[in-house]
């Protein structure tokens, strides 16, 4: 269970205060899959990064599982305790470049004191689960495709047995033909009742996999509800406008996405697959 209450965050630049999170409250149930959507600069990444304190909120409280922190003035021990509750999948994969794929997945475990042999066995299992072949496990990140790197990073996230996984646009940096393999892995996680918070621009995927969609604009939650409802028939005018614009972007990504089996026609027609899971 994630419980975020009245989260606030501003950045200060030359032009003064930039309020990025303007009182965000959000609950995510255990096993729930929540997709966060919204225009560029609306604060999606900042919200996600506040959940593991990569950004320090100015005010508000965050509870994940049995750890609760209250900003401002979160002590270092609480920062680490909260971070151990989640894992993050980044847009740019952020794999450790001087370590093999296998070592990337082992390291978070050994860093917490797991014996090496046990960490290696778990890492092999996790990498197999995300579809990384035995021979590929010994390769360094530079020699892997973007899709492989992102799947390794998902295995790395699973390695710490997190309470929830935070994914920030996990497929946005991928070549279109590689998006499907990564979405397929995320879909599996969702079906295995992992708690997931996904910032995504893949509306069809969000509608299919997420239980709930949260639309953020200007640092506030404008609308949220069952995924299909929000995406198919948004109540708020701002959501409607955003979805219209999101759809009018070139749709070649979804078209080249066999594993996700996403519609190739614009979302406006029907963003949902006929065999999609119930929202």
């Amino acid at each position: 269970m994630i419980d975020v209450s009245d989260l606030r965050k501003s950045f200060f630049g030359k032009s003064g205060e930039n309020v990025v999170l303007d009182g965000v409250s959000l609950q995510v149930g255990t096993g729930e899959v929540v997709a966060i959507i919204g225009p560029s600069g609306s604060g999606k990444s900042t919200l996600l990064r506040c959940l593991n304190l990569l950004e320090t909120p100015d005010a508000g409280s965050i509870s994940i599982d049995d750890v609760t922190v209250r900003a401002p003035g979160i002590p270092g021990a609480q920062v680490r305790a909260l971070r151990k509750k989640t894992a993050m999948v980044f847009q740019g994969y952020n794999l450790f470049r001087n370590r093999t794929a296998l070592a990337n997945v082992m390291d978070p475990m050994t860093a917490q004191g797991t014996p090496k042999a046990q960490a290696e066995q778990t890492a092999r299992e996790l990498l197999t689960r995300v579809g990384i072949a035995e021979t590929t496990m010994q390769q360094y990140p530079v020699t892997l495709s973007g899709g492989q790197q992102q799947r390794v990073s998902i295995a790395r996230a699973l390695a710490v047995t997190p309470h929830a996984i935070l994914l920030d646009e996990p497929t946005s940096a991928l070549d279109p033909e590689l998006v499907g393999e990564v979405l397929a892995v995320i879909r599996d996680l969702a079906q295995q009742d992992m708690t997931l918070v996904i910032v995504t621009h893949e509306m069809a995927f969000a509608a299919e996999v997420a239980d709930r969609v949260v639309f953020i604009d200007g640092g506030r939650i404008v609308e949220q509800g069952p995924a299909r409802e929000v995406i198919r028939s948004p109540r708020e005018e701002r959501t409607r406008r955003f979805l219209r614009e999101a759809v009018s972007e070139p749709a070649q990504r979804s078209a080249a996405d066999p594993a996700a089996d996403a519609p190739s026609e614009p979302l406006g027609h029907d963003p949902l697959r006929p065999d999609g899971l119930p929202g």
Binding site: R83, K84, M88, F90, N94, F96, D107, A111, R156, A159
Partner: peptide
């Protein structure tokens, strides 16, 4: 060195010195 790795490490619960 690509700084994203620091965030990745911190996000899995490693300490900055680690």
């Amino acid at each position: 060195v690509d700084g994203g790795q620091l965030e990745a490490g911190l996000a899995t619960g490693m300490t900055a010195p680690q």
